[in-house]
Amino acid sequence: MNQVIAALQWLADGANWSGPGGLLARTWEHLWYTALALVVGAVVAVPLGMYIGHTGKGRTFAVGVSGAVRALPSLGLLTLLAVSMGLGLGWAVVPSTIVLALLAVPSLLAATYSGFDQVPDDVVDGARATGFSELQIVGRVELPLALPLMVGGLRAAALQVLATATISAYLGLGGLGRFILDGLSVSDYPRMLGGAIAVGGLALAVDGLILVVQRLVVPRGVHVAVGPTDA
């Protein structure tokens, strides 16, 4: 309990919030690493998920790949990429982004193809019967109906990536993981615990924000579950 109180006092100290190594700057760095990984993961997962959901082809492949990616040890893969790529500190963000993006892909992929797959066949057939092209069906019928579930997948992916982005500190990058790693090196446990609390608080804030977005994108008259999606 004493360590928790000390960590809260560390968080309440304004001196720990200012400067390039302060909590505010590290939080923005952490959000940047998370956002970059989510964008890269979405570029891969969303088009593939849309294709699978629309055509019904490749579901077994997607499930297999998602399961394999989930099984990868993030820290081990980060170390392997950093060593094999031989990148200097200025480019350490590359292996970090690759690892975090791989972590985001399964949730984004599963949510996208599940969202498209749950669109009723009669709705799609009706759109096709009225003369919609396949591209129009995807963009104007399936995508709006699948969007709430897709945002749910984004919510799950964001939490996973944000929590794991602390490992970026092992490559000398910033983010809230710096407080955990730097505190460990000098046995500064209040700083370590304060950094962990900051990560948890940031995760809750991001989760709440995406939950609001998820509710806003639900089409009128459509009811969907708004819990994190990880199909």
Rank of each mutant, 00 (worst) to 15 (best):
A129M: 12
H30T: 06
A12I: 03
T27I: 10
G86Q: 04
P73F: 10
A35I: 13
T79C: 01
K57N: 09
T55E: 02
S66V: 08
D125S: 12
A35P: 00
V39S: 04
L100W: 01
Q136S: 13
V69A: 14
L72T: 12
L143I: 09
L77G: 06
A62I: 07
L36A: 15
L36F: 09
A111F: 01
A12Q: 06
G90M: 05
I98N: 02
Y51S: 10
A71R: 00
I52Q: 00
L81K: 04
F61K: 01
M85A: 13
P73K: 12
T34L: 02
V124R: 15
G90Y: 10
Q9N: 15
L87N: 00
S66E: 09
P95H: 03
A129R: 03
V65L: 15
I52W: 00
L31I: 04
P20W: 09
S84T: 15
P95F: 06
W10D: 11
T55G: 07
Y113F: 13
G64L: 11
P106W: 12
M85L: 15
A25L: 02
L147R: 11
E29Q: 15
G90V: 05
E134F: 00
A45H: 00
T34S: 13
T130M: 15
W28P: 01
G131V: 01
L135A: 15
G21T: 10
A71K: 01
L11W: 03
R128L: 12
V44W: 06
T79F: 14
L103V: 14
A6M: 04
V119Y: 02
A68H: 00
G131A: 07
V44T: 05
L11R: 05
G41A: 05
Q136F: 03
V123N: 05
V119L: 07
N16H: 14
P144E: 12
P106S: 08
L109T: 11
Y33W: 10
E29V: 05
A104W: 05
I98R: 06
V83F: 13
L149R: 13
P95R: 04
Q118Y: 09
L102G: 11
R128I: 03
M150P: 08
L38K: 07
R70N: 09
S18T: 13
E134T: 09
A129E: 09
A146I: 10
G126K: 12
V4Y: 12
G21V: 09
F132L: 15
R70D: 00
L36K: 10
A62D: 01
G126S: 14
P120W: 04
L102I: 10
